[in-house]
Design a protein around this nucleic acid. Structure first.
Lengths: 199, 199
DNA sequence: CTGGTTACAAATATCAAGTTCTGTAACTTG
DNA sequence: CAAGTTACAGAACTTGATATTTGTAACCAG
């Protein structure tokens, strides 16, 4: 019996996200997703080539929402670049803390994906690096940042703040001192970026 | 039949390290260690309270050797603090790369220990932080570092270089660009430390 | 021919059995 | 009694039979 509901990619993604949220990434099967939609599991394979592809699509959608939120902060010319950099880095951390709190299962799914070397993870990092580069380029233009290559500098800042955004350190984000720690690293980096001249 | 060999803690530790090296941390049992020494496994328990304690003792010995090597670099007053800081951070990375290359099984054992929240890991970090603090204190005294609290600054530097010493990032230490990456972060941090005045 | 179905092979996961390992205790010997 | 032994209970690991899941193919309705 066909034509119960139309069943397109979006509906499948929403259902998958729900199943993932409920069952967690290890126990969520595509049979579960199909059952939730009232179709056979082969039907979802008409829309997604593999379980891996389905997982990636869900995670990508989820990460893109984060990216868009952060983009607003990164592009806000009203805030001076130094302050904006600090705010952006704190927002990255706060966003991930919120994700863990609200959807630990989805967060775990992202971890599995990252470990599997999916492009979803590297693409997301590239997006964030782009935003960081924009902030630093702004700072070089009018905020007193002394930097030749904004992209290389962005990479260095990203590497120096790995503890505050890389999944491997998610456990430390619960520490009460984590925001102070980030502030301290920010201060050190901003000092370096804003230094009038190098010896 | 007693009194074949004396059997003290050191002999057991050496045998354990050998077994660990050969079998890896998951497959190495205390029965294996005892067999290698030609005694019953209960004999080992006369010297170490538990398998966990035995593993910790082996790892602690191993890490202490690293600590001592790095201490030489940290304490070398002949090298100016800025350069010494850079050299020390590179030595930390190089040391871990060498460990992975030469004794991946022992390295894995350390990872298991760290995950189990053993004090061995936190003690080692404390040791390294102490060395870093000493370098920065030297820099504050005579190397042109502008820092109020050497210990807090050391912590910030340690956090900012997490990618280059935390086990979670061991996979990235194979990347060809890793040394350049560390250099770039070092430069940024040193710029911050040496900045003549903050805005 | 789009959007679904059922049916099936291969890869994976689960579970209950037997086995090995950890840790303790009671025992032996110089 | 120091330095070991054997013996044993419970926890943790194999192992292999069974069940689920993934992914594909051949088939059907509008």
């Amino acid at each position: 019996m066909p034509a119960r509901t139309p069943l397109d990619a979006d509906i499948i993604l929403a259902a998958t996200e729900e199943i993932l949220r409920r069952h967690g990434p290890d126990k969520a099967t595509v049979v579960d997703v199909a059952r939730a939609l009232g179709v056979s599991h082969a039907a979802v394979y008409k829309h997604f080539a593999s379980k891996q592809a389905l997982r990636e699509a869900v995670t990508r959608r989820w990460l893109d929402r984060t990216r868009d939120t952060l983009a607003v902060i990164a592009a806000d010319r009203a805030v001076p670049p130094a302050q904006r950099l600090r705010a952006w880095l704190h927002a990255v951390l706060a966003g991930k803390q919120a994700k863990i709190r609200e959807a630990p299962e989805l967060f775990a799914a992202y971890g599995i994906l990252a470990a599997a070397h999916s492009t979803v993870a590297t693409d997301h990092v590239a997006d964030l690096l782009g935003q960081l580069t924009a902030i630093i380029a702004d700072g070089a233009a009018d905020g007193g940042f002394r930097t030749g290559d904004a992209e290389a500098t962005a990479r260095a800042v990203f590497h120096a703040t790995v503890r505050f955004h890389h999944l491997a350190h998610a456990g430390e984000w619960q520490n009460p001192g984590i925001d102070t720690d980030l502030d301290d690293v920010c201060s050190l980096l901003l000092e370096g970026l804003q230094a009038p001249a190098s010896p």
